[in-house]
Design a protein around this nucleic acid. Structure first.
Lengths: 107, 107
DNA sequence: TTTATATATCGCAATATTACGATAATAAAA
DNA sequence: TTTTATTATCGTAATATTGCGATATATAAA
């Protein structure tokens, strides 16, 4: 076993879980926090700042890109990774919607 | 490797990531959603409702308990698992705080 | 063109997660 | 006490994630 049974859950549940999952790593939290404080943001800075190997950082960036939280533009010989504010806000709303519609209780 | 290097991140980053991580599974999302619609909530209902084995559901409940999102009380020969509303609201605030303090950007 | 710099991808090893059957533990019911 | 019902835990197999060195790719600089 070991494989998550995504087929028994609906699309929204799987999507929401995927968003939470990608935010569920301290390196990715740290990356988002660091990028948000910078005026220019390139992967190489992150390697020194976070303390993980370049290949590892690149992989985490890829995952953050996969949920469109980061967008990257080529800038000379480096990359400019930025938070997509529209997506960021939409995601915050999506998570709040989950919290607001799921709080009623029995005891 | 494979081990997350928690020691290079600060306590808040690790805690936040842990919260996101535990919410990052569709079964746990489904469990929270189902419990929130019920008047009484026992594990056995969940097994039928979600469609995973009893041992698996029990394990997911344990993880949700580990971040205090669920509290369980013994009720006769079954358990009453409930969402801890105070913790639920606090967690929502914590996530919003992360979103609100991390949205500024460069491009 | 050659060299230097920056990022992405590949392949692998180590660890973590997911799922479940079997079984233990607990309490109500017979 | 024995049986039944409900939940937790153990052990294990399968898959996923994490991390990194090596290498590929791409662009700027020399």
């Amino acid at each position: 076993m070991g494989i998550t049974k995504t087929q028994i859950f609906d699309k929204k549940q799987n999507e929401l879980a995927q968003l939470f999952k990608i935010l569920g790593h301290p390196a990715r939290i740290a990356i988002l926090q660091y990028i948000s404080t910078q005026n220019s943001c390139i992967c190489n800075d992150l390697v020194e700042e976070i303390g993980l190997a370049q290949a590892t950082i690149s992989q985490h960036l890829k995952e953050l890109k996969s949920i469109r939280l980061l967008k990257g533009e080529i800038e000379g010989k480096s990359m400019c990774y930025c938070i997509d504010i529209d997506r960021w806000n939409a995601l915050q709303q999506q998570l709040n919607s989950f919290f607001n519609t799921t709080k009623h209780n029995c005891c």
